[in-house]
Nucleic acid binder design. Structure first.
Length: 380
DNA sequence: TATCCGTGTAAGTGAGTAGC
DNA sequence: GCTACTCACTTACACGGATA
C-alpha cells in the first residue's frame, strides 16, 4: 500500500509536469489548459489560479467543469493504461482497487446532472501467485513452450481480448459487464487451450475451470502473466513486458522455523518448484529468501531498457548468501542507484516506521552490462 | 551414502553509552 | 531524563562441506 501511494503520487506529478511542459489539453478539446496552474505540494495535487486561489469544482461553471473533467480523465488514462498489480492476498487486491477508485472519486464530475460513471479499473489489479506460472514466456518471444506459432485467427483472438478489456473498463450496465466478463473468460480459456499446456473444462455451475494436470497443487494459484494482462502481448502474440516495475516484495525464509514461528510457509512441492525452477536459479544461496525470487521475477517481466525499483533487505549488499542475486543484478542491469537504510532503531530514519529491518532500495535499468570491473570478485 | 558440525539467518531483541 | 546510536546477543533450524 505504501508503494501504491507512491505510484499515485507520481501519477499526480505526471499531470503537473504535463501542465508545466504546456502539453496538458482540456478533456475532449483541442485547447490547452491555461487558466490554472498545477503543482504537487506536500504530495497533494494543487490546482490554483493566477491569484493563488485554490480550484474548487463547480458543476455550473463551464471552466470549472472543464478542469475537473480534465483532471479526472488524466488520472483515468494513467490508471487504466499504466497501473497493473498482482497480490496473493485477495483482500489486499480489494483494498488496492478501492484505493484507486477513491483516487478517481476525488475528481469525479457531473454531466447532465448525473455523476459520470467511474470506470471498472478492477481488471488491472488481480489476485494470484506472481511467482508461479505454467506458460513459458520471455521478452520478445511468443508465449508457450517451443515458441508455438500463432495462427492468424489466434492473433485476432488476442486483439478481440484487448478490445473487450477496453470495453469492460467503460461499461456501467451490470448485465453488459457480466457478459463481457464471460466473453473474456472464454477467450482466456481458448488461449490456454491454444497454448496446449493447460486444459480447461466447465463445471456444473457453468464456471470455467482450468486443469493443470498432475501438478495441480503447485499451480493452484498460478498467475499466467501473458494471458491475464493482454496489454503485455503485441498483435502477433509476442510478449513485450512492462516498461516499469516498482515493488515491495515480501521478505522471509521459506519454511524455516524461527523462535517457534515460521516466517513464510509454503507446501513442500511448491518449495521444490522454487528451488528447481530455472527462473529462480539466481535466487539460490543459503536458506531461500522469497525476496530474491521476486527480484528474478521482476526482471523477467521487464522489457529491455525498462526501469525497476524494489525495496528489500540490506543483506543484498554484502551477505555471502546473496552473492548470486548480486551477481545477477550487476551483470544484467545498469544500477541507477542503491539507497541503504541500515539504521533500525531510529524511527525517523526507517523507510517504514513500523519495520525495524535494515533495507535498501534498488533502482535499475534492464540492460546487459558486459564490463563489471567496478567491483572485485569478493563483491559477488 | 549417511552423519556430523560449523555457518547463516532474522520485516530479530535488548542493554549500554555518549551527548545534550 | 531523554534521544541517538552501537553492539552483543538469542533461538532454532536449514544448508552445505567435511568426514567416516
Amino acid at each position: 500500500m505504501n508503494l501504491l501511494k507512491k505510484a499515485l503520487d507520481y501519477m499526480e506529478r505526471i499531470i503537473a509536469i504535463k501542465k508545466q511542459l504546456g502539453v496538458l489539453f482540456k478533456h475532449g478539446k483541442d485547447e490547452l489548459l491555461t487558466e490554472y496552474d498545477i503543482d504537487v505540494i506536500d504530495d497533494i495535487l494543487s490546482v490554483y489560479d493566477g491569484q493563488g486561489k485554490s480550484f474548487h469544482y463547480d458543476k455550473n461553471n463551464v471552466l470549472s467543469q472543464s478542469v475537473q473533467e480534465t483532471l479526472f480523465n488524466e488520472k483515468r488514462t494513467i490508471i487504466e493504461n499504466c497501473l497493473f498489480g498482482v497480490d496473493l492476498n485477495s483482500k489486499a487486491v480489494a483494498i488496492c482497487q478501492l484505493r484507486l477508485w477513491i483516487e478517481l472519486l476525488k475528481n469525479a464530475y457531473y454531466k447532465n446532472e448525473v455523476m459520470e460513471t467511474l470506470p471498472n479499473i478492477d481488471i488491472n489489479i488481480k489476485s494470484g501467485n506472481s511467482l508461479i506460472n505454467k506458460l513459458n514466456f520471455a521478452i520478445g518471444s511468443k508465449i508457450g513452450q517451443g515458441g508455438v506459432e500463432l495462427e492468424k485467427n489466434t492473433q485476432k483472438l488476442i486483439n478481440q481480448y484487448k478490445k473487450l478489456v477496453a470495453a469492460y473498463r467503460g461499461v456501467s450496465d451490470k448485465s453488459v459487464k457480466a457478459e463481457i466478463r464471460k466473453n473474456i473468460e472464454s477467450i482466456k480459456a481458448n488461449l490456454h487451450s491454444i497454448y496446449n499446456q493447460i486444459s480447461f473444462s466447465v463445471n456444473k455451475n457453468m464456471e470455467i475451470v482450468f486443469d493443470y494436470g498432475s501438478d495441480s497443487s503447485i499451480y493452484r494459484d498460478a498467475f499466467e502473466w501473458a494471458i491475464e494482462f493482454p496489454e503485455l502481448l503485441d498483435e502477433k502474440g509476442v510478449f513485450t513486458g512492462f516498461d516499469c516495475i516498482i515493488g515491495n516484495p515480501p521478505y522471509g525464509l521459506l519454511n524455516k522455523k524461527q523462535n517457534q514461528n515460521t516466517s513464510i510457509s509454503v507446501a513442500p512441492e511448491l518449495l521444490d518448484y522454487y528451488k528447481t525452477s530455472k527462473v529462480y536459479e539466481w535466487a539460490k544461496g543459503g536458506v531461500l529468501n522469497i525476496y530474491r525470487m521476486f527480484i528474478c521475477r521482476c526482471f523477467s517481466l521487464l522489457k529491455n531498457d525498462g526501469h525497476c525499483c524494489l525495496i528489500f533487505p540490506l543483506a543484498f549488499m554484502g551477505d555471502a548468501t546473496n552473492s548470486k542475486i548480486r551477481q545477477f543484478v550487476m551483470e544484467n542491469t545498469q544500477v541507477d542507484f542503491i539507497e541503504a537504510f541500515p539504521e533500525r532503531d531510529i524511527e525517523s530514519k526507517r523507510v517504514f516506521k513500523e519495520v525495524k529491518m535494515s533495507v535498501c532500495i534498488l533502482g535499475a535499468t534492464k540492460r546487459k552490462v558486459w564490463i563489471v570491473n567496478t567491483f572485485s570478485d569478493k563483491f559477488f
